[in-house]
Design a protein around this nucleic acid. Structure first.
Length: 198
DNA sequence: AACCCGATTTACT
DNA sequence: GTAAATCGGGTTA
């Protein structure tokens, strides 16, 4: 398993392309002498001119990292409780990591999460940050330096299931959520179409 | 599946 | 001031 960090050029693309290409990659975390690894199985793209994106209204204190160089982390606090991890693509755009398949350091993740079931460790953007100990201290972290948090090549998914993004109200139908085919570790099953009653 | 609630920041009035 | 927020857990049914 090659755990070396991906280089800057991997990130400096449009967020949709990057989101697809992140599926199957490895998020690597080193914290308190432990190494934690998870495979990306769910990601969402947020573009610069995207009503659902934190970047939509321009730079603010919170989203400053989104406007910095590609390949850094954008971490923010969601609903006052949870942290969410984004990977900055081209400046002003980012990819939200929504779920990982835990591969290494599961007991450490369990301890941080306070749950046992492997499908509850990293299946959700807030859950995976808790499992990996990601906080605002990681906002702006350079993911190419291989120091505390980075992304390694893994084995890119050959395909992606495509759905609308979760938990947004603006641009609710834009199909920029990507799920690795066959995974059981997504935050929600990737329903392709919503059934509708007449 | 449908609510309810927590904890806090942000953006807008 | 205030509503909404890239959420998660719990309860009710």
């Amino acid at each position: 398993m090659n755990l070396r960090p991906l280089a800057r050029r991997f990130y400096g693309r449009d967020a949709v392309t990057l989101a697809r290409d992140l599926l199957g990659r490895l998020v690597v975390r080193e914290l308190d002498g432990a190494r934690l690894v998870g495979r990306v199985v769910e990601a969402e793209a947020y573009a610069r001119d995207d009503p659902a994106s934190h970047a939509y209204r321009g730079p603010t204190r919170r989203n400053a990292s989104m406007f910095g160089p590609p390949g850094h982390a954008y971490v923010y606090v969601s609903h006052g409780i949870h942290h969410c991890l984004n990977v900055v693509a081209r400046p002003g755009s980012a990819v939200l990591i929504r779920a990982l398949e835990p591969l290494e350091g599961l007991d450490d993740m369990r301890r941080r999460r306070g749950v046992e079931a492997v499908t509850s460790l990293c299946s959700g953007p807030g859950r995976l940050c808790q499992a990996l100990g990601i906080t605002l201290a990681d906002d702006g972290a350079d993911l190419t330096d291989g120091e505390r948090l980075w992304v390694a090549p893994g084995r890119p998914a050959r395909d992606a299931l495509v759905t609308a993004r979760i938990g947004i109200t603006a641009a609710a139908e834009v199909p920029w959520r990507f799920v690795a085919p066959g995974t059981t570790f997504a935050s929600r099953p990737p329903a392709i179409r919503r059934r509708r009653r007449a």
